[in-house]
Design a protein around this nucleic acid. Structure first.
Lengths: 145, 145
DNA sequence: TATTGTTATACTCTATAACTATA
DNA sequence: TATAGTTATAGAGTATAACAATA
């Protein structure tokens, strides 16, 4: 005997489910970052800048984030204008600029992390800790990186 | 003994992983739908219109898709202009419009489904069938619906 | 010649407010 | 008074092309 439950069409469409879930979590993230004048794309740049020893090049940022380098320019511009990151010239290649967090940026990065965790808690609350680990693992394997 | 592998910061950030994976799959979806003049948002509307017996109201579409009703108007407009869906007046409530697929729309929906599956195959190829089911289950439980 | 960062532009997506017609 | 759909608008996100400086 086979039991089939169809809630709605699209429930088996991984593309739809991904974009739907992503939208929910990104929205919650943006709402939380609003108090700091940031949005989720700038947040991810800040995290990489703060957590990468010696800074990260814009090309690397583009690769990790899956963005075009031209988009990274604007994101870094905004973070730099807010005083959260700085562009340092690379010593080995004068074309390359290393994006590193300022002290202020590192503080914002550290302070916001738990707030963001709490914010997405509402969306992910139905999943156990083990299931979230599972989800992290599955999603990591979809992205190239 | 504990083994910790840090590939890059953000790899433990479910918000980032969701938006990154979503971006990849949506991009592949859009590329596939380009031949039909559609994009992923119109596709999801078409699927719901085609698969819901008797049509679906725009309010219901907005709810399932997580969009504002005003955005649904435009998506339905575009699909209607392409001759893929029609708005039918509801018999019980004259405010309500039921969006249903035309014969042409049903054909496009049926023909495109396997193409889209093949297209996302490239992104999801690293996951086994069982893992995809697992992912579907986890993602379904994040969305309210 | 190829690569890093940059500028510019167009289009899509997201978020809101205000309006109409029906209920 | 509330709900379904619509119009309008602004801002954020995505996609490309072309360019200067450097390798």
């Amino acid at each position: 005997m086979e039991v089939v439950m169809v809630l709605t069409p699209l429930q088996d469409d991984l593309g739809f489910l991904l974009s739907r879930a992503s939208g929910l979590v990104v929205r919650a993230t943006n709402a939380t970052l609003l108090a700091r004048g940031l949005r989720h794309r700038q947040w991810s740049v800040l995290v990489l800048a703060a957590d990468t020893e010696g800074g990260i090049t814009q090309r690397e940022l583009a690769g990790v984030l899956g963005l075009d380098p031209s988009q990274v320019v604007l994101l870094v511009d905004e973070l730099a204008a807010a005083g959260l990151v700085e562009r340092h010239a690379s010593t080995s290649d004068r074309r390359t600029k290393l994006v590193a967090a300022t002290a202020d940026g590192a503080r914002v990065r550290a302070e916001s992390a738990p707030e963001l965790t709490a914010a997405t808690e509402h969306q992910l609350g139905r999943l156990s800790a083990a299931e979230r680990d599972q989800l992290r693992d599955l999603l990591s394997r979809i992205t190239p990186s």
